[in-house]
Structure formats: structure tokens, C-alpha cells
């Protein structure tokens, strides 16, 4: 291999997964109308800036960041839940020590945000913000309150299904992901443009947590399990071609 650093190849590129994600132009979600590029995206090769990314550590986390029920003097109202899962890449590799950030509405469906003024009370004991790092195996775990559904003005009688916002970094700029976790059996999916914007129905289901009775904390909290898959590497000529599926 050459010792000249300018001629060394970049590490393998990441697999492109545009077909999995919602389109930027989705008329059902009215606010996309003026906020989507019309020229079409230009292909960016995965060079050094794209295959690297911020590896943020413990300094981003403070005490109680992963337990949203203990961030105030009193306990928040609502159904206490554990939300846990594993972050992996598309090759099945766990993504260890990566920052996971969440934010959500309270049990009644109201966010602690100046822009959220619908007539549902704020909870003085709930901020709705959490952070954690995944462990060696890519696992994360939050304790929180099950968020409520809430109305919005996108269409007539529009309601957002209950959801928790998730933000993930992975290990490369290409893997950055912001998404939402939903709850199983929500009757509001049918009219939700966020949900319906995902072209493939199977892909939508990947945003739904699984009720996890086995990990319920007896006499304390229900549990939901939600695994997250970030982009994997593209195939290279050096890769073992064993078909494991």
C-alpha cells in the first residue's frame, strides 16, 4: 500500500438507502411545500468527510438524562414506561458508545415548548428530553412517560399518533438519523402524513416499538423494545460473499 496519504483510498462507502426514507416533497404534509429542493439532489461520493463523524462521549450526558421521570422534584403524570433497544448498522453490527437523544410530549400530548399552546396542561414535573450513550453492544435504555397524541393543523381534525423523537449519530456523517418511534396498534396512523410519507409499508412498521412484557418492571413500569438500524457499508470486492440470509 502506498505511504502517500493523499493516494490512499477512503474506507468503504456506506450503502445508499434513499428508497427507505420519505420524499422531501410530500403534499400530504403541507409544510413540505416550500421546504423541499426542486432541483434534485446531486450524488455525493463518500469521501473522508462523509465516512467520519463526531464521536461524542460521556461529556454530553448528565445525571438523570436517561430517566425522564426523575428530572424534577416530583414525578410526572402518566404511564411510566421503559423504552430500550439496540442500535445496529445495516450489516448487523452493534453501534456502541453512540449518542441517542430523545424528546417528546407529556402524557396529555403537550410539549414544553413556547410554540405548543393547545389546551392541554403542561406537567411541572416533565421536561420530555433525554440523552444516553449506547453500551458496548449498542444497547440504550430510557425510562419515561408514555406520550399522548395531540392535534395539529395539517388537515381537518389532524392528530399526531403518540411518538418519541429520536436523534442518532452512528459513527459517520452518512449515518446521521433523526426519526420518531411509535407505539403498537395506534389507531391514528391512517391519517398521519408522517407515517404515510414512508413509501414502503414494511418500512413504516420499523418505526413501531414492540410491547415487551418480559422487560416490564413489576409494580413499576411497562416496557417497549425498539431497535434502530443505521446505514451499513457498501459491498466491496474484498468482502466475504457468504450468504447468511
Amino acid at each position: 500500500m502506498s505511504t502517500d496519504p493523499t493516494t490512499r483510498p477512503a474506507p468503504p462507502a456506506y450503502a445508499r438507502d434513499a428508497e427507505v426514507h420519505p420524499p422531501l416533497d410530500y403534499p400530504g404534509y403541507r409544510s413540505t411545500a416550500l421546504r423541499h429542493p426542486k432541483r434534485g439532489l446531486r450524488l455525493l461520493p463518500h469521501l473522508l468527510t462523509e465516512v467520519t463523524g463526531p464521536l461524542l462521549g460521556e461529556d454530553r450526558i448528565s445525571e438523570n438524562d436517561s430517566d425522564l421521570t426523575r428530572q424534577h422534584d416530583g414525578e410526572p403524570q402518566g404511564q411510566r414506561i421503559i423504552v430500550h433497544g439496540q442500535v445496529r448498522d445495516g450489516d448487523g453490527r452493534p453501534v456502541p458508545h453512540t449518542l441517542v437523544e430523545i424528546w417528546q410530549a407529556n402524557a396529555g400530548g403537550r410539549y414544553r415548548h413556547t410554540g405548543d399552546n393547545w389546551p392541554c396542561p403542561l406537567d411541572p414535573n416533565f421536561s420530555g428530553v433525554g440523552r444516553t450513550l449506547t453500551d458496548d453492544q449498542g444497547r440504550y435504555r430510557f425510562t419515561t412517560i408514555r406520550p399522548g397524541a395531540y392535534p395539529w393543523r395539517n388537515h381537518d381534525n389532524a392528530w399526531r399518533p403518540a411518538h418519541i423523537h429520536f436523534s442518532l449519530f452512528g459513527r459517520a456523517f452518512t449515518q446521521r438519523l433523526v426519526t420518531q418511534m411509535y407505539f403498537p396498534g395506534d389507531p391514528l396512523f391512517f391519517q398521519d402524513p408522517m407515517w404515510n410519507s414512508i413509501p414502503d409499508e414494511k418500512a413504516r412498521e420499523r418505526l413501531v416499538a414492540r410491547f415487551d412484557y418480559a422487560n416490564t418492571a413489576p409494580e413499576w413500569a411497562l416496557a417497549y423494545e425498539w431497535d434502530i438500524v443505521l446505514r451499513g457499508r457498501e459491498a466491496t470486492v474484498f468482502e466475504d460473499e457468504v450468504d447468511e440470509d
Binding site: D91, W103, H113, G115, L230, G232
Partner: peptide, 21 residues
């Protein structure tokens, strides 16, 4: 080669300010 389908993206929504900054 990537074998597991990735998790789809969703919007940050109007209340991103409570969680991300």
C-alpha cells in the same frame, strides 16, 4: 453488503428546540 433494512427518517417537527440544541 448491508443486509438489514434501515430505519426510516422522520421530521424533527416544530418542537426540536426542546431536544436538540
Amino acid at each position: 453488503m448491508a443486509r438489514y433494512a434501515t430505519t426510516p427518517s422522520q421530521t424533527v417537527g416544530p418542537y426540536l428546540h426542546i431536544g436538540l440544541p
